[in-house]
């Protein structure tokens, strides 16, 4: 048994979307499908504005709603904790899409592609990998994990904001990082939407930047200055 988990450190993350594209490159997902996304959040009003970039991916919940909602038993949880959609069993009912409170399951009724039809890249190496009209989602790159490789987004993250490993193994990179950050910066990992009680394995560390802003009091900037 193991508990594979991804930790995203929001201090390190710069919101560059390298993960988004690395995932597309790795998984060959069709148009409009992004297993890894980055939410670009802005909060407040000028000048007291905060920006937060939140990389989102499948949380591989221990109590996964998509799995429970699937009427076809196509979604399963491996002993190592990875939740997968069996592409052969899935019948594209679409229940899991609504079931996931994070919106991380994707079902495109008919795939649209990026390149011209005669391009070998998509024709021979991307399209054949995919079943049609099935739900898809992030697999933690299970096919890479099975070869002892890190997921593509982890490998591609230019700020190493993503750390992957087995939470039950104290020697894994993720366990060590959690312990290190606990003692050095006092940050505790947290989950998204704890109220949904999905018990995710993907977890986050908060941003350290203060994100204060300073501008002369309201009004004076409205005056046009030349």
């Amino acid at each position: 048994m193991a508990k594979l988990a991804m930790l995203v450190d929001l201090t390190r993350c710069i919101g560059c979307d390298a993960c988004t594209l690395a995932c597309k490159q790795e998984n060959g997902t069709p148009m409009d499908v992004f297993f890894a996304r980055v939410l670009n959040i802005e909060a407040g009003t000028f000048p007291n504005v905060k920006r937060v970039y939140l990389p989102v991916l499948c949380n591989h919940c221990e109590d996964a709603p998509c799995l429970k909602g699937c009427p076809n038993k196509a979604i399963f949880r491996r002993p190592d904790g990875i939740v997968l959609i069996d592409q052969d069993r899935c019948r594209g009912t679409g229940a899991c899409v609504a079931a996931c409170p994070y919106g991380n399951v994707y079902l495109v009724r008919s795939d649209r592609w990026y390149l011209n039809e005669d391009e070998a890249y998509e024709r021979d190496y991307v399209k054949p990998r995919l079943n049609q009209n099935v739900a898809r989602k992030c697999t933690y790159c299970a096919h890479r994990v099975d070869q002892s490789l890190d997921p593509a987004c982890v490998v591609a993250c230019p700020t190493t904001a993503r750390i992957f490993g087995d939470l039950e193994d104290p020697e894994s990179p993720v366990s060590k990082y959690v312990a290190e950050q606990r003692s050095e910066t006092g940050r505790e990992p947290f989950h998204l939407l704890p109220e949904a009680k999905t018990v995710p394995t993907t977890c986050y560390l908060g941003p350290m930047a203060e994100q204060a802003s300073s501008s002369v009091p309201d009004g004076s900037f409205a005056e046009v200055k030349r």
Partner: peptide, 12 residues
Amino acid sequence: SQTAKGADLWLP
């Protein structure tokens, strides 16, 4: 900007 995301202080 995106970089202001990681800043302690943003001066508009």
